[in-house]
Design a binder for these strands. Structure first.
Lengths: 231, 231
DNA sequence: GTCAAGGCTGACCATCTGGTCAGTTAGCGG
DNA sequence: CCGCTAACTGACCAGATGGTCAGCCTTGAC
């Protein structure tokens, strides 16, 4: 996002409204799920009149798509920056991608729940596979760093495990250590030697927040009220 | 289910209506998701008047709960029968539970999609853990058949992988062999020796259909039309 | 200070959905 | 054949939801 700095106050106002709607959408969808979310829920949470909504988005679908795209772009960018220096070791790339994604979702429950409940458009598991998606896994197999017979099955197991873990971490059913433990187990599953897997997943992870420009404030780690509603 | 045989024609009619509603509910929820399913969708699919719905269920929640309970009971019963003779080897119990659940969901897409889209009340992953849930895994750890440091993490990985696999199998993104392959990988993950895992997951699985009374017809393996709808 | 442009507002409308109920029909006992 | 009970039916109602629009307010140019 960040499309060419807003020139004047009017533009900034417009952007503020749009941002308020997107933030509200993420928040509401995160706590109720996409299907249960009405446009009024969003405008109420954004403290914006209903009519304004249609100045920015053509309907519910559009705002969901926009919110998802923004979220994906942000996470993807961060992962790319984070893993770029590690590209010569697929195992490290995967470990960092997994751990960063897990941590980001858990430390900002609004983000985590939004991804979990935003529908088919976005999946934590796929994000956690890293900026290069399954191509990183494929490279690892070709280079002999990984040993596994079926790329697709590997990706399925990784993605599924990640999603399940995020959900249970957000529900408070698993301790923080489970994140590193999961990453280590997944590396082992891919045939990375035990010691390596352990060592790699114990490496320091850069602190959260956009890794390049630190001007961006971290954003309060909101807690997420109870889910569901409606009938 | 099967609560004391229906005595007369009137009773049978009532049961038929109820069953039609439940079947319709499973079918509609499977293709649209719970939240997008209206009561009229269900009564239309069941070819029953709207008012009749409330003769049997107090509302949408009630029919979903009933459908879920029935489904869980049926699958649970089958798993129990299937694994009872294997109880002295937790690895075999788990393998059969996993494979049967996967197969049942994939061969009857209506069932599979229903479970995937019925909401938080039912999760394939938990079903696949077997009739005894995680207690089977725990037994395996205690008896030394499994080696893993964290039961909850193990269950999370298993449940997550299973759910992801069922979804992708139903979408046709993975070949049938992936089911056995997943089971084998999960056993290895739990520390079962490579050869054992391979052998156990290659054992014959009894044919589908209720393993005891074969009077029950198998039910046509309906295909499932495209999901989503609304907005 | 004045004015035009564009964003914001909330009342308003059409539609849909959950839920009700008076009336109809099927089945059973006599 | 008759009458009673219980299930079934579908028109109907109230509330919620998506989407529109005429008017208001903020901003920036002059």
């Amino acid at each position: 996002m960040v499309t060419s700095e807003p020139r004047n106050r009017a533009d900034r106002r417009r952007l503020r409204t749009r941002a308020a709607l997107l933030t509200a959408a993420r928040q509401v969808i995160g706590s109720q799920g996409v299907d249960a979310t009405t446009i009024q829920d969003i405008t109420d949470a954004a403290d914006v009149a209903k009519g304004s909504f249609y100045n920015h988005f053509s309907g519910a679908d559009a705002i969901v798509r926009a919110a998802v795209e923004e979220t994906l772009a942000e996470l993807g960018e961060t992962l790319e920056v984070l893993t770029e220096p590690l590209r010569d070791d697929p195992a490290r790339v995967l470990a960092v991608s997994l751990r960063h994604t897990l941590r980001a979702c858990v430390q900002d429950p609004t983000l985590g729940w939004f991804i979990l409940r935003a529908g088919d458009l976005i999946e934590v598991g796929d994000i956690a596979l890293g900026a290069y998606g399954r191509s990183d896994i494929r490279r690892g197999l070709e280079s002999g760093r990984f040993h596994f017979d079926d790329v697709e099955l590997a990706c399925t197991m990784i993605a599924g495990s990640v999603e399940a873990l995020v959900r249970r971490r957000l529900k408070g059913e698993l301790p923080p250590e489970a994140e590193e433990a999961l990453a280590a187990h997944l590396l082992r599953l891919l045939g990375v030697p035990d010691g390596d897997a352990q060592a790699i997943t114990e490496e320091e992870l850069p602190p959260l927040g956009d890794p390049r420009r630190t001007e961006h404030e971290p954003g309060p780690a909101q807690t997420n009220p109870d889910p569901r509603r409606r009938s």
